[in-house]
Nucleic acid binder design. Structure first.
Lengths: 129, 129
DNA sequence: ACTCTATTGATAACGAATCTCATTACGGTT
DNA sequence: AACCGTAATGAGATTCGTTATCAATAGAGT
């Protein structure tokens, strides 16, 4: 059966304190810097589990997986700052419907979709001039 | 200045014959199997160049980059079969507008977006029963 | 033909992610 | 509270996609 360990809880909590997406490696470093003795493999496993259970969202960027805590149970997408990583959850029923429609129009079944918007947040836009 | 080599042309052509997204490695294998002496690093470089020039689209899946020839100059997204890789280019002005609007609503500038739909194509749906 | 230099390619190096396996510790039982 | 089966951990090795290195090659303008 599934067990509750302080390691999983530490990962869940560390993820919750971040504003944007984080890599497993940087989360591991942060935990270590905070005095934890958690292992890297465990962080990878915990993040993968959280993603499966719907407590975290993940995306691939530049060849690595990034994770972020999300509000469980809701399907949503992200608006992500390219510069600072600030992330906003966005919902878009119109896009969901569009995806389903496009899929069925072409005979595709069991549609999934990846929809993420990247940009510069207000703060980073100001700094970039 | 930029030079035209048979290697780049070989990659461009090999990419054009494929129906769906391919990895650099598998494209390299295919070229080698076809008698070419092209090197792996060159295939990686050629694909990266094609992507920058807008002649190829790329996406990240399971930790690797996949490429596909695309109709240059047009912005479009993809409907991709999870099973066989068959890919259909789709256009969706509504989604473009939605992305821009969501970005500006939250103060984000210079919006980009990643929009891909995955599913099972008609053929693979039939086989999966 | 000559020269300059972008490109190539074999291989080494890198890095993210996974695997191995002995050790640890959760949690249900007694 | 001691016991036990086994899921989970973690250090290190391993895998695998990708990039860097650098001597050799070959475009393309003169």
């Amino acid at each position: 059966m599934k067990r509750n360990t302080w390691q999983r809880e530490a990962v869940r909590e560390a993820l919750g304190t971040r504003e944007g997406f984080v890599s497993a490696q940087s989360l591991h470093s942060a935990l270590r810097d905070g005095g934890s003795s958690i292992g890297l493999a465990t962080v990878y496993r915990a993040l993968a589990d959280l993603a499966v259970e719907g407590e975290a969202d993940s995306l691939q960027q530049e060849g690595e997986s990034l994770y972020r805590a999300c509000t469980p149970g809701t399907h949503h997408h992200h608006l992500i700052c390219r510069n600072c990583g600030l992330t906003v959850e966005i919902e878009a029923d119109a896009v969901e419907q569009w995806a389903r429609q496009v899929a069925s129009e072409h005979g595709f079944t069991q549609p999934n979709h990846v929809v993420d918007v990247f940009g510069l947040c207000a703060e980073c836009s100001a700094l970039a001039g």
